[in-house]
């Protein structure tokens, strides 16, 4: 109740001074992401957990868009939400038989996890507020967030992945205009990740394939040899 009152009063205060839409949407997405993440923990039904997780990750993609990382945000939507979680739900549905949909956790574990999690959260929050430079927004933020300055986020990333950095390239010796540093591209990690994905594809297909076919084949072999005998 008090929280609601506080929310309404701060909303009114902001309205009189003009809402900062960037902050507003940040708040919206942040509350969605955190609230739904908590819901994932609290939910017992595994399908509902997956649903909350989807919404939470979608809201996080919104946060990425707000931070100017549009490519990463779209990637998050495409791979995480569109790919990984559909896969996850697929798995949930394959294994979702009545006794496993909701496996209860003992209350003792919950309390213990709550204490550990609370401690971890306290440490992380303390760290988040210690860096003085982190809590200040840059001076020219207002014009950056109004959508006037759209910085291309996809192409520099793509260039970095094939080994050319636009913000200071180590190969050509070109220095970054901002801080005079050189940076290396990501060609090797990119290749490693590509091969890794291929290996994972093959490995997952191998792991998940049913052994039934082999058994049937063996049985058929035995029956045919039996027939020959």
């Amino acid at each position: 109740m008090i929280g609601t009152l506080f929310g309404v009063s701060s909303l009114l205060a902001a309205t009189s001074g003009g809402i900062n839409w960037h902050s507003f949407f940040f708040l919206l997405f942040a509350l969605l992401a955190c609230g739904l993440a908590v819901a994932v923990v609290l939910a017992d039904n595994v399908v509902r957990m997956a649903f909350y997780l989807v919404l939470s990750l979608g809201a996080t993609a919104g946060l990425f868009f707000l931070a100017g990382a549009e490519f990463v945000g779209a990637m998050q939507l495409m791979i995480y939400v569109g790919g990984t979680l559909v896969l996850l739900i697929f798995g949930v549905m394959l294994t979702a038989q009545e006794p496993f949909v909701a496996i209860k956790t003992p209350a003792r574990d919950k309390v213990l996890a709550g204490i550990v999690g609370g401690g971890l959260l306290a440490v992380l929050l303390q760290a988040a507020f210690t860096g003085p430079a982190w809590s200040e927004a840059p001076a020219d933020m207002a014009e950056r967030t109004l959508g006037q300055v759209t910085q291309p986020s996809a192409t520099p990333l793509g260039m970095a992945l094939v080994g050319v950095r636009v913000d200071g390239d180590v190969a050509s010796g070109e220095r970054s205009p901002a801080d005079g540093n050189v940076r290396s591209g990501y060609l090797l990690p990119f290749e490693i990740v590509s091969v890794h994905l291929l290996v994972v594809l093959v490995g997952a297909a191998y792991l998940a394939r049913t052994k039934r076919r082999k058994a049937v084949a063996i049985a058929r072999d035995e029956s045919t040899t039996g027939g020959v005998r």
Partner: peptide
């Protein structure tokens, strides 16, 4: 609506989320 420099990627990614409602409907 919003000129994104990853426009086409965004559209395809979000369109892929439509399947999600269908899966949930099927399960629920």
């Amino acid at each position: 609506g919003l000129r994104l420099n990853v426009g086409v990627f965004y559209v395809v990614a979000v369109l892929g989320l439509e399947v999600f409602g269908v899966i949930l409907a099927g399960y629920a």
